[in-house]
Design a protein around this nucleic acid. Structure first.
Lengths: 163, 163
DNA sequence: TAACTTGTTCAAGGATAAATGAAATAAATG
DNA sequence: CATTTATTTCATTTATCCTTGAACAAGTTA
């Protein structure tokens, strides 16, 4: 089962250790502390520390106070909506923003091209890129809705089993 | 501009050279051959060969016959829908399928757990995973529609201001 | 058939990212 | 405050993936 999370992590560009740690918490019936994670996975303290830091930042784990223990205990976030939202906010939006800046810079460069037909071609390609970016932006809220398991706003289709 | 494609490639887990090659073709007003790509980017023949192979497989470049030349010439695929479709088919669907197999295997293992409460917990977590997988499956056609720029089936605009 | 063109394959080298573990830091306890 | 405990930092090692370029195969020309 942990392997599933390691693969999922790899798919979205996160290191193996992060998939392992989240998977470990996901499988456990109880909150785990630092040392338990280290021991169960057999990975280094450094990896656990860094992995938990990233997972906290993503909102993929929650800290859980356990009375009688000084250690921090962790629970996995089980809401896919919150997981996806955290990932988009932390790993995706920054790319989109820097991409927008870059396209704006390119726009200026294109305007400065001397040869008219060359400029025209570059302009057309740039416009295509801008369209693509607009579509990606449009996709984010839709993806959040679908992955969050929320009812779609457009419920055109009737249930399939009506006769 | 090519840099944009290098970053986009990295974002979806493809090597730098592939982003460069596609970007090079995307920027060029004319189809380019093998040697032109190698010369303009200053990368090795091996990288160009492998990169073009992957891009062909993804459907991200099209071969274009140029009379009077023995060389293969390439044009970039400019339809985002086809680009996305190729990517999903080649890089995404395989993961989804193997994931489904893995979950099925886990289902058997969970059924074999002796302790009842432990089994119950594992079963609940497995179900959550299965729900997540179902949602990802559901997302694919939606993503294709949005990224492809096709008119949505729904009359209502989804809220564009999330995130 | 020899020489040349075009493109692919693959072993070796290189670059990059992740894991490690010891030392430093921070926090709680007696 | 000294001491024990908990966590982070960071230089180093390790692992992985990418790139390179020479050798190779297939097709073409003279």
């Amino acid at each position: 089962m942990i392997d599933s999370f390691v693969r999922a992590a790899a798919l979205i560009g996160l290191p193996r250790s992060i998939g392992e740690i989240y998977g470990c918490l996901y499988c456990s019936p109880e909150p785990l502390d630092f040392d338990q994670i280290e021991a169960r996975l057999g990975i280094s303290r450094g990896s656990v520390s860094g992995g938990l830091k990233t997972l906290r930042q993503l909102g993929a784990v929650k800290m859980h106070y356990v009375s009688g223990s000084r250690k921090d205990h962790y629970l996995p976030e089980l809401s896919m909506e919150r997981l996806v939202r955290g990932f988009i906010k932390d790993q995706f939006t920054p790319h989109l923003e820097s991409s927008a800046e870059r396209l704006a810079a390119i726009e200026d460069q294109v305007a400065a091209i001397g040869d008219p037909s060359e400029r025209q071609h570059a302009s057309a390609r740039l416009q295509t890129l801008q369209t693509w970016q607009r579509r990606v932006r449009k996709l984010l809220p839709v993806a959040l809705t679908v992955l969050g398991g929320l009812p779609s706003l457009s419920r055109k289709e009737p249930p399939a089993d009506i006769i």
